[in-house]
Design a protein around this nucleic acid. Sequence first.
DNA 1: TGTAAAAGAGCC
DNA 2: GCTCTTTTACAA
Length: 802
Amino acid sequence: MAQIALIIVDVPTMQTNDPYSYVIPTDLQNQIEVGMRVVVPFGRGSRLVLGMVVGLQEETDYDGKLKAVLSVMDLAPVLNPELLKLSDWLAETTYAFKISCMETMLPSVMRAKYEKTVRMTGDVPQDVQDRLFGDQEEIIYDPEKMPAQDVSELLRLRAAGQIEMDYHVKNQAKAKTQLTITPLMTPTELANERQNVKPNAKRQIDLLNYLGTIQGQTVSQHQVITETGISAAVISMGAQRGWLKKVALETYRDPTHEVTRTEPLALNDEQQVAVNRIDEAIQGRQAHNFLLEGVTGSGKTEVYLQTMAQALAIGRTALMLVPEISLTPQMVNRVKSRFGSKVAVLHSGLSTGEKYDEWRRIERHEAQVVVGARSAVFAPLDNLGIIIMDEEHETSYKQDEMPRYHAREVALWRGEYHQCPVVLGSATPSLETRARSQKGLYERLMLPHRIHQQLPTVQIVDMRDQLANGQETNFSDALKTAINERLDRHEQVVLMLNRRGFSSFVMCRDCGFVLKCPNCDISLTLHMDTHTMKCHYCGHEEGIPKICPNCGGHKIRYYGTGTEKVEQELREKLPEARVLRMDADTTRKKGAFERILTQFGNHEADILLGTQMIAKGLDFPDVTLVGVLNADTALGLPDFRASERTFELLTQVAGRAGRAEKPGEVLIQTFNPDNYAIQLAAQQDYERFYGVEMRIRHQGDYPPYFYTAQITASHEDEAVAAKAMYEITGELQRRLSPETIILGPTPKAIARVKRRYFYQVVVKYKHEAALKATLTDILQSTQSPERRGLKIAIDPDPYNFI
DNA sequence: TGTAAAAGAGCC
DNA sequence: GCTCTTTTACAA
């Protein structure tokens, strides 16, 4: 029997990144297993922290005195051997702490809640007792929320031995329970009881009668109350008298509404080829990966569903990753209608409790199919038979906080582990993926034809002409005419405003003053719905100024184009059109997204106006016109992927128009009509875009020809951040090969966020054997300055360069 | 010479 | 990240 547990402690620092040894007390020895969460004393004060058991052994080679595990939090392991191994790999490749990796794999309710309480043990002065304790024995100690003098008072009392502090680790992961009742008496016994009940106890008689009708069944108390009107109090009394028993049964929060089942659709030849090839890999248990390249409307989803069904048919499980933005109810229903209750869904719209329940359903093997966004790639599915990643190119698959993983790489790792295929699907694959398929790393499967749709006609509108006519507007004449035609024909229109690199702000026309966030280095964004100015980085909020805070002038005006402003212009220019606006503001509330789409689907509006989020996966048969108001705002961003993003977005949104019966039209308004990304998106020519863009990447030594890594330093004092970054750059130059390109150090484009200054260096390399060791050393060596408020972040494959 | 604030070191 | 220990700052 194991005596010693190796535990990764919930202290995210570099020096506590390796397991610590703890003695297992005898009473825990037959409970504790690898992959369980435990509570252990840690540090000088032996405060209590959560830890993850990663190993068990008979003896320890640690010289010092061991502390003992205090308690076990789980009845069964929450991380299986695969996920433990994966977390090691993640920590190593993303330069993250192991405990942070484990945390991201688990539902957030499994994260520890820490609390400290203060208890009186000696003679506490009466005034302090009255002021702080009142009539309570124990109070919560939180230095953040208490007045500073109370904190020092308490610390002094503790030093004098008059009070003591206790540590608490709370487990938030609670399964939801539901009260149920079961009759304990036979009808004859119930009849006897009835004799003893006072005749005016009407509800008790009701209850006795009701119990007679549910012999041998277990019914939820809630149901009893709503059906019969008997109150909870009466039921409790019934339980006391032994008529029935009340039991709290575990339930899941997800009341999966029933979906009508659908059968697999007939496949065309191309789809059939794809399904066959993928199925061979599933049957052959091969970690063979695919790039499924299919234009919008070519039936990729049906290929996913049928290959997933193949995996289930041989007793394996299936994981389907979808970008958060396309994880719409329509999408989910499509999967549920094929696989029913076998499906678990993981997305950000669920409450923490709901996420926990879905996670447990997967973990208990009650769900064999998982659909979810980025973090669903860690779903605890055993025996995976296929992993699908739809819209493979979406940048939301990359997490830009610790651990900075890309779900695609995790999916490929898991495919290798389970010896199952990974299918990357997209109409516009990322250049990295497309290049890998060129090299033969992925087998390329093509779906070049639309099934029910014909390709829309795409027209580029040069907005410079409009401006030359002296009109400052979001709507060209061509677009206005096109919209009016649809209104006359009772067809629908989708208008997209590209918000990337764009926001509305207020500026003084007299002195040019722009209202900025006091914490961050960016201008505040105007929000007409709440009548406030908001910072999109730190959330700071303030009122809209009437006079200029700088010069006191009254000519303060709005600039920039937000969806609200466009909506306003639309109402002025086309007052008869019914407009629905969809952006981050109108969809913040739960279910709002779904409601807007339903309204539009029911023809309650003629025009759907929105940001990027309307580009993905929406499918409305009566939309025959798609307008892109400003195609080029993203092009000016200092990001080598700017063209790729623009091309993707335009191609996606163009796919929203038209069906076989009603041909679609797309109008793209731009100030850069000659730009290749816009031109080729209009022609829907991915292959040529790939060729052109690859040449540009080659010339600039950018991915996929080179790898990139980004090191960021931040500090409240700009000079400290800058100095640290210069030292790090020096070390990189000394240790990395001369072929490697080091860019920077430079202040970030938004230099100050949340009162911190950011400096960064980007490394571009082809082969760099020393990189891993160098970056690890940098992390280690910055440990001591890190305590003085310096933060170092390493991203092994950054997507955000600004 | 005393106290308070800042810096340092270790955590099994 | 937190706590205890040591060092440094600053006033009396």
